[in-house]
Amino acid sequence: MAVILIHPKTRVVGMVHIALPESTINPAKAQDKPGYFADTGIPALIREMMALGCSGGPKQMVAKIAGGAKIMDPHNIFNIGTRNVLAIKKILWKYGVSPRTEDIGGTMSRTVTVSARNGRVILSSPGKEEWRL
């Protein structure tokens, strides 16, 4: 799943590609690659952006999220996409941020492109025209 943060005042744009909701499964990996997990990836992204001068903290940032295709699993094991969405929203909420736009769930893969020049977020999926988030 992609979490995109935009700081309109400084025009700093950042994105993190999250694969799993929680880092407790492998703290060593989280140390090495925090972006892999929602609970370490979002704080790391915010830290990096603040280091680049994004004043006012995360509340001054615009969040967009995309991805999290669904797998129907009554045993609640393979529906990681849904768990990622929940974890991401929970962490953003802790920072006082709620996604301004989102394109989540469904049964398709998405590729996300962010323009660092104008902050535009473009989504694509095989067999479909590109669309803007």
């Binding site: 492998n26 797998i71 129907m72 045993h75 094991i77 990681i80 049964t107 893969s109 067999g127």
Partner: peptide, 28 residues
């Protein structure tokens, strides 16, 4: 284009003893 457009056969649980944590570790 076919990505994620297949059904999971939920009877996997009768054949494979897998937990949420096992799956996360397998992905890593």
């Amino acid at each position: 284009a076919d990505a994620m457009r297949y059904q999971l056969d939920d009877h996997y649980i009768d054949f494979i003893k897998i937990t949420e944590n096992d799956l996360a570790q397998i992905i890593l």
